[in-house]
């Protein structure tokens, strides 16, 4: 490297100061003006996180939120050159630091993750849609779905209730998030365990709907095939209206 160690040290100390605010000797700097850099850099991090996590920011006490953001800024080395992707690192940081327990916010990990996923899905690169037929006879076919989606599991129903109300309802919650093709908006659908199994198998596109029905009957111990078919078709038709189910694979 053509850069001398001494020059590197000045740059490194400058960055350390910006991140943690601890006094450090940096050659030839104006000590009255250094804090402006720290303020400017911190504001970028703070504003980006507040924009990405509006629900968390609204419901978490300001002093706790500020402490989380301040610790993140000081102790975490942001890795992504695209600032809009940086909040994903905040989600991981809070999890690693166990802030959910430390600040008695049991829903925290789920809420941050959910809010980040919404942004990620909204912004993610376009995925090629499958070729589909628009037949209504789905039973013997493999159902085709919107490829721009995620299926996630949460411990708290933060997608259904306000965070502190969700905190008392620990359980297993499954959720389908997908991006509408036309508008680009992200929709989410609360899923039962059975419908999660159904959607996961549809996404794999290895089995016809009838084959998935047979698996469901066996795994979930269901005897009433007609009722199952009726409920599933109702559910899938709703998802077709909402733009998740596209038709059947060609």
């Amino acid at each position: 490297m053509l850069l001398k160690t001494e020059t590197y040290n000045q740059q490194s100390n400058f960055v350390k100061y910006c991140r943690d605010g601890k006094e450090v000797a940096i050659l030839g700097t104006n000590p009255e003006r250094l804090p402006h850099y720290r303020r400017l850099v911190f504001n970028i991090i703070k504003d980006t996180l507040e924009t990405t996590f509006p629900i968390s920011f609204e419901y978490i006490k300001t002093e706790i939120w500020d402490e989380m953001v301040f610790n993140y800024f000081s102790n975490h080395k942001c890795n992504d050159p695209q600032v809009w992707r940086m909040p994903e690192e905040f989600v991981d940081f809070c999890k690693t630091e166990n802030y959910a327990a430390k600040f008695n916010l049991p829903f925290l990990n789920d809420l941050l993750y959910f809010e980040w996923l919404e942004v990620e899905l909204y912004m993610m690169e376009d995925v090629t849609y499958p070729q589909v037929n628009n037949t209504t006879d789905w039973l013997k076919e493999k159902i085709a779905v919107n490829p721009e989606h995620k299926i996630i599991k949460l411990e708290y129903p933060i997608h259904l209730e306000k965070p502190f109300e969700a905190a008392n309802k620990k359980g297993d919650y499954f959720l389908l998030l997908f991006r509408e093709k036309e508008t680009g908006k992200v929709q989410f659908v609360n899923l039962s365990v059975l419908f999660t199994f159904l959607i996961e198998n549809i996404v794999l596109a290895e089995k016809t709907l009838e084959e998935i029905f047979n698996d469901i009957l066996y795994i979930f111990g269901i005897n009433d095939l007609e009722m199952l078919r009726s409920e599933v078709f109702k559910f899938l038709k709703d998802l077709k209206t909402r733009g998740f189910v596209l038709g059947v694979h060609c």
Binding site: F14, V15, V41, K77, N79, P81, M86
Partner: peptide, 12 residues
């Protein structure tokens, strides 16, 4: 805007 593997997202 980056040093020691940390992005600061501002112009230093």
């Amino acid at each position: 805007s980056k040093c020691d593997n940390a992005h600061l997202y501002d112009l230093l």
